[in-house]
Design a protein around this nucleic acid. Structure first.
Lengths: 189, 189
DNA sequence: CGCCGCATGTAAGAGGTTACATGATTCG
DNA sequence: CGAATCATGTAACCTCTTACATGCGGCG
């Protein structure tokens, strides 16, 4: 390989989840979409081959649960080497991923679109983020009812990140929408 | 192809830039890194094949400028069909891309790392965003607080998005760092 | 009786990054 | 005189997504 490995983050997500208990591929997918979808996601079709690779590398083990005639359920557990690999990755600096915000790209090319189209995009985005804010706040309240236990502390922090980010997005949308309205009034005069 | 085309956004970025004047691949790359890197980026190695494809599809034309013994400079210009394609894309709803925030993933797995490591990551991230905020504010001031001319109006909006986002990130970092410090004090007691 | 949840996996390929290859010119 | 800029392009390769393949069991 010439291109230096941009190491798959999927494998670390898997190791991280398995670090708090054995799970099947299906379980992992569910956990991702139900708990951390606000900052991370995985597609099920990618999970299986990566689990296979982790197995081959000895970072996880696999046990099979056969229940009647259903497809065999494979439960994966992290090994000592897997834990080491996870801890190594956790210590490594976060690699910044260059942003690609499609909505800003469209806005940047705004001169080639109608104001109505732009406003429509921003409004849709605003609603999206407003919904997210509501969800995040609901989750936060649910977590916040109890004292900061170890198992929810970090989840709560990520939820707060979502709250901050959504609020900022809303404020920005309102700014942009106001400016677009001012422009429309000017054009009307 | 079975997987339904997630249409390359690179091609639209190219068309959008070419819509305000002919450029070479090299020029496009420079413009991306110098002007819109805060929300978009392209790698030069990917630009050339995509330009080639746009040429084959008749969305751009190419003229060659030979200057002495240097590699021939290819200048691309958008065609009427290219403009149509761009405008079509601009009208289409923004496709939301599921987030993957590595720093939050590491934080979420915080139970398997030392508090010092986590704090280090957050501090690094904070500095990063503080730098970005400074840059964004400088650019914003340069663009001029008020008279929104058409050619800077949309750029300014994207810069404002960066300002809002960076401020939110800083506030979040401070919150998290304070919580980590409180935890450390508790552990000390 | 139809849909959803459970459950695994493969195939195809898009999209994108990095390294390599090559060489002139400009500037400090 | 060495580094950066100009300038294009190819090769290798990886990551990840989507679609396909398959089928049971429970619930409304």
């Amino acid at each position: 390989m010439r291109a230096v490995a941009a190491p798959s983050r999927t494998q670390y997500a898997i190791l991280g989840l398995l670090a708090s208990g054995p799970r099947s591929g299906y379980d992992i997918k569910k956990e991702v979409t139900e708990r951390i979808a606000h900052f991370w996601n995985e597609s099920i079709g990618h999970l299986y081959p990566v689990l296979r690779r982790l197995l081959d590398r000895g970072l996880v083990t696999r046990t099979s649960e056969t229940a009647g005639s259903r497809p065999t359920r494979h439960v994966y557990a992290i090994t000592a080497e897997g834990r080491q690999e996870l801890e190594y990755w956790l210590r490594e600096p976060v690699v910044p991923s260059p942003p690609r915000l499609e909505i800003l790209l469209k806005l940047y090319f705004g001169a080639h679109a109608t104001p109505e189209v732009l406003t429509g995009h921003i409004e849709a985005y605003r609603e999206d983020r407003a919904r997210q804010l509501a969800t995040m706040q609901a989750v936060h309240d649910m977590l916040g009812a109890r004292p900061s236990t170890d198992d929810t502390r970090y989840l709560r922090m990520t939820v707060r990140a979502g709250v901050h980010s959504a609020r900022a997005a809303l404020a920005w949308c309102d700014e942009v929408l106001a400016e677009q309205q001012a422009l429309a009034r000017e054009a009307d005069r």
